[in-house]
Amino acid sequence: MKPGALIDSILTQLNQILLGKDYQIRLCLTCVLARGHLLIEDIPGVGKTTLAHGLAQTLGLSFQRIQFTSDLLPADVLGMSIFERDTGQFRLQRGPIFSQLVLADEINRASPKAQSALLEAMEEHQVTLDGQTMQLPEPFCVIATQNPQDQVGTFPLPESQLDRFLMRVELGYPTPGEERELLCGMDRRDLMATFSNKISAEDLITLQTKVQEIHVAGALLDYVQALIARSRQVNHGLSPRAAIGLVRAARAYALIEGRDAVMPEHVQAVLASVADHRLHPDKNGLTAARLIETVPIP
């Protein structure tokens, strides 16, 4: 199948579980296609977990869910050596991180120690247990969900950890019409059971390579650099890592939009989810939306 048709079928299926969230779903898919890790931030109950689940199902990836709690230990994420009485030897028990799509639910509930265990694995795509280094499967993607910071019992992720997530997506409440449809319809879990794998893990890798082939013109990079430069006029501007991520995400978004080159619109579409969690709008008042408004397209 052509990439366009593949992507369309993925989007169609995902739109069935999360109603009226086409843009957010596109962003989530963008993140996966750009080989990034995704942070979904919203209040409980708007469908974060459902979305992650649906993504795994649709993309045909092996899936594990880790519920982060305050007493979670790094070993609970990465795995550990277990002594087997039968053989009299230690056996390495791989943790839930060893799957293609890992859902780290409510990541800001866990202690920083457990958080960093996950985040290191995300960055390196490998885990070292008892001196033994093991590669994580490919494709590998972490979708973390997070409750807003002001909720009780949370350890907010530090800036350096936030930077590891390519994109952060907020889902938001459904519109009244969509909510009505949701209330009338089938239970989402039952619905999900009817879902099939639209693509295989291999297809996903193919799509991810396709992202790299999307053309980025010099004129577009001018625009990206102008955005980055503008963000640096305040405290905590966008880092080079963020800039690279922005271009990568824009490429993936262009692929989803069925284009062979990135347009400024694609950059604008992904900018909020790439930049907002890095810009600290609450500290310096510069949001991605404001950034877009103040930088003319050259």
């Binding site: 400024p264 619109e265 604008q268 408004e293 103040t294 930088v295 003319p296 397209i297």
Partner: peptide
């Protein structure tokens, strides 16, 4: 057109 508005938008 607004200065920051992309052509397709």
């Amino acid at each position: 057109r607004r200065t920051h508005e992309g052509a397709e938008d």
